[in-house]
Structure formats: structure tokens, C-alpha cells
Amino acid sequence: MFLFLLIAMVVVVAAVTLAVIGGGDSDSTVLPDVPPEQLVDPLPITRPVTRADIEAVRIPVAPRGYRMADVDDILARLGAEVAERDARIAELESALAGAQAAAVAGPDLFEKRGEEQDG
């Protein structure tokens, strides 16, 4: 009985091995070579990144997780976008603060300048 199970196991292993490697015929393989997935970058270049753009990002899986270069590229793009937005927010906040200061102190300053020019 043991010998029969051993022979059956060898036959099954040999059949699976031949099925995977194609049985020696190199033209018709059961498992054809598939090119690795490439990152399709949905992040727009011509407009600011939106939440939908970030949700649409799908990083292809590599044999041991994700490709570090793809992840680094996406993080660099998002970091640049955040830095650009931070700079724009700071610029707008300073412009707003300047406009508010001018609105609070504006009428008195303009009247004094006008009186100095007349005298």
C-alpha cells in the first residue's frame, strides 16, 4: 500500500510539473510569461490634485510588495503638491492680513497724507 501511494505521489508531482513548465514544448506553455504591471499615473500635471485623483491611484503589486520607485514617485508628486498649496495659502493669508490692516487703519492714513500735501 505504501509503495502505491509513493508512486501515485510521484506521478501527481510529475504531472503538475509538466503542466507548469509546458511539457517540454516551448511554443505552447500553459503559464505564459506576463510582463510586469506598470504604474499608470493618474495624477494630473495640468491642474491641482483632487481627492478623487488620490483615491484613483493604484500601485501595481510586485513579487515582494510594491515597487519602491513607484511609491516614491507618487509620494514626491503629492509632497510637491502639498508644498505648493501651503505656499499659496501663506500668500493668501498674508494678503488677507494686509487687506484687513489697511481696512482698519486706512481712512486715517489717507486723510493725514492729504493734509500734509495741502500744507
Rank of each mutant, 00 (worst) to 15 (best):
A90D: 06
I89D: 04
A80M: 07
I59L: 08
S26P: 13
L92K: 13
D73G: 03
F110W: 09
L31I: 15
V61H: 06
A14Y: 02
A90F: 00
V13N: 03
A52M: 11
P36A: 11
V40K: 07
V12A: 15
G106V: 07
G24K: 02
V16T: 05
S94Q: 11
R47P: 12
A15M: 11
L96H: 06
T29C: 07
G24P: 04
Y66S: 00
G98A: 15
V20R: 08
V13L: 14
P35N: 12
D108A: 14
D25E: 02
D41Y: 08
L96Y: 11
Q117D: 02
I74C: 05
R88K: 05
L43A: 07
F2S: 14
L109N: 15
I45Q: 03
V57N: 03
V82Y: 10
D33Y: 01
A97G: 09
G114R: 14
L92T: 11
M1E: 11
A15P: 12
D72K: 05
G79M: 07
D118P: 05
L3F: 14
P60M: 09
E91M: 09
V13M: 01
A56N: 11
D41K: 02
V30R: 07
L109W: 13
P107H: 03
A99V: 09
V16L: 13
A14C: 10
A103L: 02
Q38Y: 05
A56F: 02
E55F: 01
V11C: 06
L3Y: 02
V40Y: 02
A99H: 10
A56K: 00
I59D: 01
A14I: 06
R58F: 10
